[in-house]
Design a binder for these strands. Structure first.
Lengths: 112, 112
DNA sequence: GTTTCGTATTGACGTACATCTATGTATCAG
DNA sequence: CTGATACATAGATGTACGTCAATACGAAAC
């Protein structure tokens, strides 16, 4: 998903019927979160005191190969959930809270 | 996912590091929402004035076969997101807002 | 009982994707 | 320049799952 759509994604699921396009977009967003490795990466980055984590600190705790971690981090960055900043040889990642909040708001419950 | 776990699922993603088991559980929950057909079903049921919808009203708007709709509805029920009630030949579905709220709360953002 | 209708299940097929190994790219040290 | 380090990319493989046609199940009508 294009990060530039961050201000408009996503329509609430539970207030009005979703059309096909909005459903595809929102499903793609949830698909990024629908993986245990990516959820753990999000939580590790978010729970860091400094708010950012070097990729080198993420391989061991997840117990996956370095390419796999790199792949998941790229997916999260492409989805706008993480921000990547390169410093020399290292890549530092931080959570984009506005993006998470948008997905959260998509699950707003309307009381009947 | 077992509906009986409704009161404990899920750990917040962004406040503390997720262990493997919690990550698996939460990923399974999001996986249910990571499908456009299921999101549209949720929105159609939720936006019904009466709060419940007959399965017979859900096939045409989604443009999929009846078995496919039935499959998705079963997935949503098994995940605790929808409740099914049979009345004679018909099956009526309603949203379980507490369950949606739990997933929503799992995306709570902790401000640094 | 028989038929009809609404829904659920089964089995098959194709696609998507998580993961790995191997390799490429970029940066720093010497 | 050379080697080492950190990360990304490419290609391959196995599994998961969305979808359908066909069938089974169950309830109501006659």
């Amino acid at each position: 998903m294009d990060v530039r759509t961050i201000t408009r994604c996503c329509e609430p699921v539970l207030t009005a019927p979703l059309n096909g396009a909005d459903a595809e977009e929102l499903a793609s967003a949830f698909k990024v979160l629908a993986d245990p490795a990516r959820l753990r990466l999000m939580s590790l980055v978010a729970s860091s005191p400094s708010g950012e984590v070097c990729a080198c600190e993420l391989v061991v705790p997840l117990g996956r190969s370095q390419p796999t971690i790199s792949h998941h981090l790229t997916v999260l960055v492409d989805a706008g959930l993480l921000a990547r900043e390169r410093r020399g040889k290292w890549a530092w990642y931080s959570v984009v809270p506005e993006r998470v909040a948008l997905l959260r708001d998509a699950l707003a419950v309307s009381v009947h």
